[in-house]
């Protein structure tokens, strides 16, 4: 726990302060990590969100039909996507795909002495390895969430359009009248918090690997499990915070 907090502090220092003290991080590496962490996860995140939007529209239609409230399906899809499911589903995908990859990569580097080699070369591993991944995650998770929101709404639309005979214009109208800008914003705030948790946990677990390939496997599992757990708890806290404030 203490080492995790230290890592957070170090990340903040190397991201915010060090660049102004003549020790910048590598911009090129940030973009490389953005592609590795974010862009590569885009198809998966989009597909998952699409299927979630689809499912939710169908489930919602089933329940709302009984009450004669079919016209509320777009509201339901949009609101739950923007506020809750969009950030959550995308974060789950990114944990499974990118968080575990980061832990495995850093863990392997730790085991094969690469991180020690960096230290001996007087290259701070936090600056060189962690900060680009951190920044890439902080930027790409909200970006993916936006794509996920849209794809989910497309999923909801396809059910409403092809199965429930909604006009496209009516669907769009219904989905945007109920939701507010704040719904979108709160979802994005959530995804920023998730990004922070996911990447710091992944890096922490990766840098703490001990004992060979087995240790790397163990750390990767740990990273996924803890990220999911902490992310879901944080989601509950944030939802509560937005709900009661």
């Amino acid at each position: 726990m203490k080492s995790y907090l230290t890592l957070n502090g170090q990340i903040l220092y190397w991201t915010l302060l060090a660049p102004f003290r003549g020790q910048p991080f590598k911009i090129g590496e940030v973009f490389r990590q953005m592609v590795a962490i974010g862009v590569r996860a885009l198809p998966m995140a989009a597909l998952t969100s699409f299927s979630i939007g689809l499912t939710m529209a169908m489930q919602g239609a089933g329940a709302l039909r009984k009450m004669g409230g079919l016209s509320y399906v777009p509201d339901l899809v949009t609101l739950s996507l923007l506020r809750e499911l969009g950030p959550l589903i995308v974060a789950v995908i990114v944990i499974g795909r990118s968080g575990s990859a980061v832990t495995a990569e850093l863990g392997t580097m730790k085991v094969s002495e690469e991180i020690e080699a960096l230290e001996v070369m007087a290259i701070n591993p936090i600056r060189f390895l962690v900060v680009p991944r951190f920044l890439a995650m902080m930027i790409m998770l909200p970006v993916l969430t936006v794509f996920g929101d849209w794809m989910g709404m497309v999923g909801g639309w396809s059910v409403c359009h092809f199965a429930l005979d909604f006009e496209t214009a009516a669907y769009i109208h219904r989905s945007v009248t109920r939701a507010e800008t704040w719904d979108l914003l709160s979802g994005l705030i959530k995804s920023v918090v998730f990004a922070w948790l996911i990447i710091t946990i992944a890096c922490h677990k990766g840098l703490a690997v001990e004992g060979g390939a087995e240790g790397v496997g163990q750390a990767t599992t740990d990273s996924v499990v803890w990220s999911l757990l902490i992310m879901l708890i944080a989601n509950a806290i944030l939802t509560g915070f937005f709900f009661f404030s």
Binding site: F31, M34, G38, V143, V146, F147, V176
Partner: peptide, 29 residues
């Protein structure tokens, strides 16, 4: 050269998302 490709791809994705999020915010607001 690879850095440049990464740069272009990442920037395109980010710009797309900004456009999408602005569109959404505009419609909702």
């Amino acid at each position: 050269k690879k850095n440049l490709t990464d740069f272009v791809v990442a920037i395109i994705v980010i710009i797309c998302s900004i456009v999408l999020v602005l569109a959404l915010a505009f419609t909702l607001g």
